Amino acid sequence: MKTSFLARAAGLAAVAVLAATPAGAQQQAYPDKPMRIMVGASPGGGTDILARVLADKFSPSLKQPVVVENRPGASNTIAGELTARAPADGATLLLATNTAQAVAPHILKLKYDPLKDLQPVGLVAVMPNVLVVSASSPYRSVKDLVAAMAAKPGSFKYASSGIGSTQHVGGEAFNLATGMKSIHVPYKGSSQAHVDIIAGEVDMMFDSTSSAMGQIKAGKFRALAVSAPQRSPELPDVPTLAEQGIKGADVSTWYGLYVTAGTPRPAVERLSAELSRTLKLADVQTRIKALGGEPGGLTGEPFAAMNKQEFDHYGQLVRDANIKAE
């Protein structure tokens, strides 16, 4: 990958303008029923963690119960499809990642169009991916890992949260950049993959920091490299892939909030304003940074443009790495 996510989004961020929330009876009436945030991953992963942060902050402000509903599987797209088919009343939200919004559509045959059937609300956070192995693994650097992979071609396995996930793309980008070949082992979510990484059943994973940070800090994972242009402030002693001679394999995970396409504009604008307010809260910023990420800042059309840009970017990467459904 030639440029980082943040570099590609910089121009869009510069023109992002927070939409003003209009007054009026329709705006005041929303929301008028309990709300749910759909998550395409299992409990305990990065998407689930962020969704629960939003639910906790949205509920008292919007004066409605806000629950998180986990629907893992199919590279996060089950939750996306359910949101796309939900009533367009703003009661069903989706916290999605670039897995479902930009990668999976180029690999899987979906029954909905992520760019047309989901209305972007705003960018929640951006997290770098990190190459991790079990703390009991003999590999202490990318150099050690690549040397072992070269000695036993085709015998190494890497985990992901599903076909078309950023972890999957990260693994294939690593294969492409190093000339190695490791075997992809998909799971329904990062938390399930973690069990096998720790047990040594799978050799490695290119997980998002939001999912992996807990295991790293608990001493169960060893982080070998951050797949981003700069080191993570939360992992200052972990070098980047580029610092270790691996270029073109940087992959980050971003998280965005969506509603069903056709949701009335006042409802979308209310949610965008609520998201922007929430992301400015000190405790929320601290939580996101502790996960190794950065709070988002794009809303409305700039976020929609970023999503389309990422869709095109990952489409090219999928073709270059010849990533296919398995």
Rank of each mutant, 00 (worst) to 15 (best):
G44S: 08
A51T: 06
S252H: 02
A86L: 11
I323V: 15
E69V: 15
T166H: 14
A147D: 15
H194E: 12
M180P: 01
P114E: 07
V318G: 10
T209S: 13
A148M: 11
Y255H: 14
P31N: 07
A7D: 14
Q309I: 00
I216K: 08
K181A: 14
A273R: 14
Y139P: 07
L50M: 15
G214I: 01
L317K: 03
Y187I: 07
T209I: 04
I216F: 02
G11K: 04
M205A: 10
P120I: 09
L118W: 04
S141E: 05
A261M: 04
G90M: 09
Q285Y: 06
A261Q: 14
A304L: 05
H313G: 00
F206M: 15
K220V: 02
P233F: 02
A147R: 10
A41E: 09
I37V: 06
V251Q: 07
A25Q: 13
S232H: 04
T92Q: 12
S208E: 14
P233N: 11
V195F: 08
G24A: 03
A273C: 06
E69R: 13
D144G: 08
S141I: 11
G296I: 05
V39I: 13
Q101C: 10
L54A: 05
H106K: 11
A88D: 08
M38V: 01
T92A: 13
P302A: 03
N70L: 08
T263S: 06
L12E: 00
S210G: 14
R319E: 15
G296H: 04
A173K: 12
S42P: 00
A325C: 04
D250V: 03
T92C: 10
V66L: 11
A79D: 11
P31K: 03
G162Q: 10
P87Q: 12
P31F: 03
P153F: 09
P72Q: 12
A102S: 15
